[in-house]
Amino acid sequence: MYKDIKVLVVDDEKIVRDFFKRLLSLLGMDNMFAENGYKAIELVKNERFDLFFIDVRMPGLNGLDTYREIRKINPEAASVMITGYAVEEILEQAKREGVYSAIRKPFDINQIKDVIESRVIGLMEKVRGGEKNVFGKRSQEQNSYLR
């Protein structure tokens, strides 16, 4: 079901990357990892991704800056900010700049699955030409987290 979706997880924490690796593999998704923003940008330059999970607080390039850079190269992908500690202003700013969703650590697995699902739905609708409806019903709910 998710086989066609390619995901990149950007987080400096190995624990978090390991968890995503297990989950995405179980879901049968194509997954890649970067431990910081610079490495992520390098990867994005070579490959197209459908979905990004980006940690907000990272040494080097922070999550928001990483998102900005990635979007320039790979604008059609959806980005989800993940955060252990939400600074409201940053999340507000991310939302204004078009971030798809944001989720908190520790995660609710279902939440992640929902985001992925809504993205898949979005992609399928996009395939059907429904470009306007990128944010599905569930993703609307997800977005409410940003408000």
């Binding site: 924490e13 624990i15 978090v16 390991d18 968890f19 989950l23 252990g84 500690y85 650590k105 520790p106």
Partner: peptide, 10 residues
Amino acid sequence: NNPLTGVLNN
């Protein structure tokens, strides 16, 4: 929250 991810989510 990072290590909690490692507990709870795993």
